[in-house]
Nucleic acid binder design. Structure first.
Length: 919
RNA sequence: GGGCGCGUAGCUCAGCGGUAGAGCACUACGUUCACACCGUAGGGGUCACAGGUUCGAACCCUGUCGCGCCCACCA
């Protein structure tokens, strides 16, 4: 006997454990493989709403395909998340007032991170299990596992040898707080209010020129002033100390007289040239731009083009350097303090023209949230432009498809404008770059130090060194220490993530998994990591496996709060999925997310919605209880095609429609449509009508009709459990086991196929007639204020043979559900009766003396008005010759039929109105 | 500056050429033996605006207004 309600708190963990133990999440069977690799959550992470949605959708697909007999592998794992994890551990250390990482050294620090990972890294895995994720946990991977690390090394070395990876000194986005380089993608440009300072740079030797200050209509200058300076403007005054030139546009006549001359760089007291370059916009500011090649990406390009010297101003923490070209007073200052001082000093010298308030775009580190400083450093780069070629082609050729399709454009746009990818990070937690430097400064890239050393020895030997010379270069006496020094940097976390679809399957080894499960079927992710991750997996996959890593990329919504705002800790509007799971169960949360996962739209999550779908689960539970109480026991040998009762044929038919809708929707990643179709069927068809309609039979005497109805109802309920299982795995599994004491789990039951549901159009028509009539009677009763509990008689007026037959067949049903105590045929309606028109027949509720005649007249008039409106609309269409000529015949025919039906209805209603008026 | 998307019932959203829909909220009624996490009935919308295409437009096209998001070097 089922309990009064499903208790997710106790049942969910129990059911999950049973699944996991039985090994049903492992790929099995001979079916066509179906593969998804999980977007690996950060080990530092805990489950947020985005994860909940992302993994619910993946789980729905996996469970769906598993039930369809596919050999499903949902490959799980976590990401080492270099910066994030290192930050977390450092914060913990600080909290415990332990020595800093720089004090304990690299090795000790890494031990601590590993220890932390061992202790806390499993949190999110446990949370995914609570959600019901059917991953094959026996295959769980971590991006810093041995195997995955080998893959990283191999990829790095091979890309280096093929010329796709190189080391270069150039301007890079530098995070002065985290003290590392970061990639373009890790920079967030944010608009902030800043200032625009206008400075005078005096010309060398007191030189002057005529600068136009007024123009006529044709744009010719009419007035000039004599200037002994050039005016520049900047949002970052402190960088002026590193200016190497002032640039103007070659077409800018105003500055033509002084191009090629020099001006004084104030404070630094250096002379810098005035040059021309295409970069300055004559219409912006003064038209003259200070060129600080070492601290601005645009200026860097100008400097490179024009051979302008670069002056590096800051150290790794963005403090002014101790360099001879920087005046002493600024050395050691933080860049923002230096800025204040520079402005003050410029003003003091009378060189400050003006200060404007200005909105400026400022780059911030996405992790550290400090202003990013362009810095000239040595870093490792991936030539993304070259790698992108095949990745772009895979999408162009339709090998990989974005769903919804419009993300294709976003992908192309970024891929076509891709910049070199800076992959080195000055961190400790991550994959240390497999590069070693020799005593001669030469770099050796190899998978092992041994190999690199061999190469170095060969190279040095070729240069004429003897073995003894070489051994003397080793880093300790006796010639036994290491010859090479390893690069200290680690790789960008996304470098290893980029290999995820094949590294997790065992690559570079030719494992059976790799052969079977690569390329994967679909990647499920949100749009915010298309560039970070999807694009890079595409590049690595097409390069190393010669095939794109997935057939489909399904881009799902972002989960926002009720007001449509992004959830963030700082805003305090975060809804914790685990709290919702505690409160309503994982099934409710999952169904909510699926039901709202319409393509191309974000999800606004509200608790009320989750509660609503929890209620849906309860509804299902109670439907099952009803079945149980009424002897509807699942019978494995019941054949739906054998059903003789119209009611049973009908519900099987309807279930078939719902099943094919859900199947088609899931195949098209239309999760909301699938969830909606099932919700509607279960609640509004199965529960509201089928179960109600079966009551007279099930509560009646035993007989073949009752026996068949019990089996058919149990069978439909079983199909429902299967269909809902991908969405609500827990409650359905529990019911599956409880209601039939089955030993085989629902999780591996077979997905309902269309051909299992015999179509029954005639039965559907008949039952829909019954439903329509009951609804019409209820509606009239309610409108006429007949007490809900009162049983009243009803007469079918002048019914034809067909209607009479149906009345006979369904008398009990109609009477019960419409609360009638009598239902028979009559030639005409008695006086003062409420008359109902349904599908061309009239029914009378003889309520003379009880009903309000005026109210009844009003009700009939309202109905007639509706008919008139419909008929007018149709007439308007039909009287348009173009419509009859050009519209498809079916449409015209449909309108003609609808008109006939409405006219008939109107006639009957009018007759009723006439009669009641005369009574 | 470029790209993507959105404006449909009080709220959140489906629908994307042929009879305007759902959930929640709201109103009235209901202790019918599965379920009040329920049932029955009901109210509520010039589908942002203006043009165009079409026999026919919420849906396709163009423009306008409003609102998001992403990318971009204006010092």
């Amino acid at each position: 006997m089922l309990d009064k309600a499903f208790d997710p708190q106790t049942a969910e963990p129990r059911l999950y454990e049973a699944w996991e133990k039985s090994g049903v999440f492992k790929p099995s069977g001979e079916g066509e493989p179906f593969t998804i690799v999980i977007p690996p959550p950060n080990v530092t992470g805990s489950l947020h709403m985005g994860h909940a949605l992302n993994n619910t959708l993946q789980d729905i697909l996996c469970r769906f395909e598993r039930m369809r007999g596919r050999k499903v592998l949902w490959q799980p794992g976590t990401d080492h998340a270099g910066i994030a994890t290192q930050m977390v551990v450092e914060r913990e250390m600080a909290k415990r007032q332990e020595p800093r990482r720089t004090e304990i050294g690299r090795e000790k620090f890494l031990e601590k991170v590993w220890a932390w990972k061992a202790e806390s890294g499993g949190t999110i895995i446990g949370q995914l299990k609570r959600l019901g994720a059917s991953c094959d946990w026996s295959r769980e991977r971590f991006t810093m596992d041995e195997g995955l690390s080998d893959a990283v090394k191999k990829v790095f070395v091979q890309l280096y040898r093929e010329g796709f990876i190189y080391r270069d000194k150039r301007l890079v986005n530098w995070d002065p707080k985290l003290v590392t380089a970061i990639s373009d993608l890790e920079v967030e440009n944010t608009e902030v209010s800043g200032h625009f300072w206008h400075f005078k740079y005096p010309l060398e030797n007191g030189e002057t020129y005529q600068f136009p200050i007024a123009y006529d209509e044709s744009g010719e200058p009419t007035e000039w002033e004599s200037r002994d300076y050039i005016s520049i403007a900047t949002t970052r005054p402190e960088t002026m100390l590193g200016d190497g030139a002032v640039a103007v546009h070659p077409s800018d006549k105003r500055y033509a007289p002084i191009v090629g001359k020099k001006c004084l760089l104030p404070l630094a007291d250096r002379y810098i040239p005035i040059i021309t370059d295409e970069y300055p916009d004559p219409d912006f500011g003064s038209g003259a731009v200070k060129i600080t090649g070492a601290h601005d990406f645009n200026d860097y390009k100008v400097a490179m083009r024009n051979n302008i010297k670069l002056y590096v101003l800051m150290d790794e923490r963005a403090r002014m350097l101790d360099a001879d070209y920087i005046p002493e007073k600024y050395r050691g200052l933080d860049r923002f303090d230096a800025r204040k001082l520079v402005v003050a000093d410029i003003e003091e010298r009378g060189l400050l023209i003006k200060v404007e308030d200005k909105k400026i775009m400022q780059p911030f580190g996405d992790r550290s949230n400090v202003v990013i400083e362009p810095m000239l450093t040595d870093q490792w780069y991936v030539d993304a432009e070259k790698l992108a070629v095949k990745a772009i082609r895979a999408v162009e050729d339709g090998k990989t498809r974005f769903v919804p399709e419009n993300w294709t454009k976003t992908y192309y746009q970024w891929m076509h404008n891709i910049e070199p990818w800076c992959v080195s990070r000055q961190l400790w937690w991550g994959h240390q770059i497999p590069a070693w430097y020799g005593p001669d400064g030469h770099v050796y890239v190899a998978e092992t130090e041994e190999e690199a050393t061999k190469e170095a020895i060969a190279r040095l030997t070729a240069e004429g060194y003897s073995l003894e010379d070489i051994n003397n270069m080793r880093r300790n006496e006796g010639g036994e220490g290491p010859l090479l020094v390893r690069d200290e940097d680690v790789l960008d976390t996304w470098f290893s993530s980029a290999l995820w679809p094949f590294s997790t399957l065992g690559w570079p080894n030719a494992t059976p998994e790799l052969g079977e499960h690569y390329p994967t079927n679909v990647l499920v992710t949100a749009h915010d990591i298309i560039f970070f991750w999807v694009a890079r997996m595409m590049m690595m996959g097409t390069h190393f496996l010669k095939e794109a890593p997935f057939k489909d990329v399904y881009i799902h919504a972002l989960v926002l709060d009720e007001k449509g705002q992004k959830m963030s800790k700082s805003k305090g509007n975060v809804i914790d999925p685990l709290i919702l799971i505690d409160k309503f169960g994982a099934d409710a949360l999952r169904f909510t997310l699926a039901a709202q996962a319409a393509q191309g739209r974000n999800i606004r999550l509200s608790e009320a919605r989750v509660e609503g779908y929890r209620n849906f689960g309860t509804k299902l539970w109670n439907a099952a209880r009803f079945c149980e109480m009424n002897g509807c026991v699942y019978d494995a040998v019941f054949d739906p095609k054998s059903a003789k009762e119209t009611l049973n044929q009908w519900i099987i038919h309807e279930a078939g429609i719902a099943a094919s809708e859900a199947t088609a929707a899931l195949e098209a990643y239309r999760f909301n449509d699938a969830a909606g179709a099932l919700y509607k069927f279960v609640w509004n068809v199965f529960c509201d009508w089928h179960l109600e309609l079966t009551k007279p039979i099930l509560l009646g005497e035993d007989g073949p009709a009752k026996a068949e109805t019990q089996k058919a109802t149990a069978w439909v309920l079983s199909q429902v459990m299967k269909l809902l299982h991908p969405f609500m795995p827990f409650v359905t599994e529990e019911l599956w086991r409880e209601t039939a004491r089955r030993d085989s789990a629902l999780v591996i039951a077979s997905w309902p196929r269309r051909d299992e549901f015999p179509a029954a159009e005639k039965a559907a028509e008949e039952i829909n007639w019954v439903i329509g009539l009951i609804t019409a009677i209820r509606s009239a009763r309610a409108e006429m204020n007949v007490p809900a509990g009162a049983k009243i008689p009803m007469l079918a007026i002048g019914a034809d043979a067909a209607v009479s037959l149906r009345i006979d067949l369904y008398r009990d049903l109609i009477s019960r559900l419409a609360r009638l105590d009598e239902l028979h045929l009559a030639a005409s309606a008695p006086k003062g009766a409420v008359q109902i028109v349904h599908e061309g027949a009239t029914y009378a509720l003889p309520l003379a003396g009880i009903i309000d005649i005026e109210a009844e007249k009003a009700r009939l008039k309202k109905e007639i008005d509706k008919c008139v409106k419909e008929i007018d609309g149709i007439d308007k269409k039909m009287s348009n010759p173009n419509f009859v000529d050009k519209a498809p015949v079916e449409i015209v025919e449909e309108n003609r039929e609808r008109r006939i039906a409405f006219v008939e209805r109107q006639d009957k209603l009018s007759a009723a109105l006439v009669q009641i008026s005369q009574d």
